[in-house]
Every structure is written in C-alpha cells, then in structure tokens.
Computed example of a mutant assay.
Amino acid sequence: MSDSAAAPDRVVHYEVSDGLATITLDSPHNRNALSRQLVGELVAALDRAAADDDARVVLIRATGTVFCSGADLAEAATGSMEEGALTIIAIQRRILTLPKPVVTRVHGAVRAGGTGIVAASDVAISAEEASFALTEVKLGLAPAAISVTVLPRMTSRAAALACLGGETFRGADAAAYGLVTSAVPRDHLDEAVDAVCASLGTGAAQGLRETKALLNRELVERLDARGPELAALSARLFGSEEAKEAMLAFLSRSR
C-alpha cells in the first residue's frame, strides 16, 4: 500500500509491504533538507507506521544523491530557530520511542541535523561511499539539537574530531566511529538493508517493542531532560551575528 500516487506533492512517501513500512524522503530539489513540510510529513509517517498493524519494521530512506542535508537554512533565516531545534529533537524522540525497530538506509550525503535521524535509528546501514559531516562548527554553531543521540553513538575521540573539525568522513569511517551499524559497498546496500529488515521482522511485536524501550531508555531520558536547554542553545547560536554572516555566505555560495 502506497500513498505516492494519491498525493504527488508530498515530499515524504509511505508504503507498507510484507511487514515493512518504508518512509521515503523525496525532496531532492533542496537535498532533502528538514523543511517545515518535510518535517511535518515525516512525523506523520512515523506516527502512521507506529499505528499500522501491517508494519513490524520501519525503514527510512531517501531519493536523490543526498540522504538529508540538515536544517533548511533558507527557512531558518526567517523562522524561530528554537522552534526548529525543538522539532528536530521531537523527530529524534519519535524514532527512539517508536514501538517498532527503525532502520535507516544511508546511500548519500548526510549533514548536520540529518545525522540526528541516523543516530536515533536503531540500525543504520550506510554505503561505504556515503559522506557525513557535522558542519555546524563552520557556521558558528554547535550540533546541539542532535548531540543527545549522536554523541552516545560515537566514541569520544571520533566525536571530538567530527564535531570540532566539521570535515567530511565516509561511511566506512562512520561505522568505525559507531555512528552507523555497518557500511557496505553501494552495490550491496539494498541487499544488506533487506537482510537486516528481514531479520528484525522475525521478532515478536511485544518483544521488539519492549526490547527497544530498554535499549533506548537512557537516550530518551537524556533527551527529555536536556531538550529545552539544547534548543535554547541552538536558538542563541543561530541568532548570533557570527552565525548569520556565515549562513548568508553559505547560501550565496549555494545559489
């Protein structure tokens, strides 16, 4: 069952088949950035998957060459960044608390807030050639809103290098750092993702739900305790003159 044909303007599509709910980010014109529309549709799709009796496992994937480029900077320049940061925190919480395993298929570039989706997922399979970067430091920012999921996944040395350097690293590095579960050659990505989803799908619904809750309990507690503080930090940094200048320069280079 797919909703793609019924709503062609959607930037997030939902379909379920053989126990697998597939959520596809489909906004290649802005590199699957976390726009208000994409975020709203993604949360709705996650809620739908949670309630869907035909879905036992949830897969998040994307079209285009980029998995997710992070916050939509064009929108961020005109909206409330604290609200935007709280929304990114809410997406991570929804993935963490979804009563079904969430697998993320990373085929291309992942930047900034998109890394939070990957880190919040229970299993993340990446192409070795995919690229990652926590670029906030380059814009006078910090990866505040995603830190609660990203930092616990990575070794402390890897996190320091990735967050302070803001440099690009590949899928194989992301696996070594702990950010993704495994990295495989791009030609084998679908095969690896299918195998993981099939394996997870053999679990009993109650077992999957309760085991996932045990695994993610501390992450959810930390996110709930620190979420407002981290959103406020994001808003303060985004509102600074240094960050505004850096974002304007970035947007002008991107045109």
Rank of each mutant, 00 (worst) to 15 (best):
V103P: 00
L98C: 10
D52I: 01
L141N: 13
A71V: 13
I125F: 01
L86V: 00
A127M: 07
A76L: 12
S121W: 01
F67H: 10
A119G: 10
L139E: 11
G113A: 14
I95M: 12
R48Q: 15
V58L: 07
G114Q: 09
A124S: 15
G140H: 10
L73W: 13
R93M: 00
A133K: 02
K100R: 14
D53N: 12
L73M: 13
R111Q: 14
G116F: 04
G70K: 06
S126W: 05
R111M: 10
V58D: 10
E136Y: 12
V103Q: 04
V102S: 05
G113L: 08
R111E: 15
A120P: 09
S80L: 03
V102A: 02
A74S: 12
K138I: 01
V57L: 03
A109D: 14
E128P: 01
T97E: 15
T65S: 13
A109M: 11
A112S: 15
V123Y: 09
L86C: 00
L96C: 01
G116T: 09
R61C: 07
T135K: 08
G113Q: 14
D53V: 08
T87Q: 14
I88T: 08
T63S: 15
T63Y: 05
A124F: 05
E129M: 03
G108Q: 13
A145D: 15
A145K: 09
K100P: 00
I95S: 04
A124P: 12
S121Y: 02
I60E: 09
R105Y: 01
T78R: 15
T97P: 02
T104V: 15
R105I: 00
T115V: 09
L98K: 06
A71D: 12
A119T: 08
R111G: 09
D53I: 00
R93P: 01
P101M: 04
A130Q: 12
T87N: 12
T97A: 08
L134W: 07
I125G: 02
A85D: 11
E75Y: 02
L134S: 11
V102G: 05
E82S: 03
A130K: 05
M81K: 03
G84T: 12
V58W: 11
E82H: 08
G140A: 07
T87M: 11
P99S: 04
A50C: 07
I89P: 03
E129K: 07
L96M: 10
A133I: 00
A51H: 11
S80K: 09
A55G: 08
G140C: 09
A119M: 10
D72I: 01
A142Y: 15
V123R: 10
A50E: 15
T78A: 11
G84A: 11
S126C: 07
G84F: 08
T97R: 13
I95F: 01
G108W: 06
A109T: 14
G64F: 03
K100W: 04
E129Y: 02
V106L: 10
M81L: 00
A124N: 11
A62P: 07
T78L: 12
T97D: 06
H107A: 12
A50W: 07
L73K: 08
V123S: 04
G114L: 05
G108R: 10
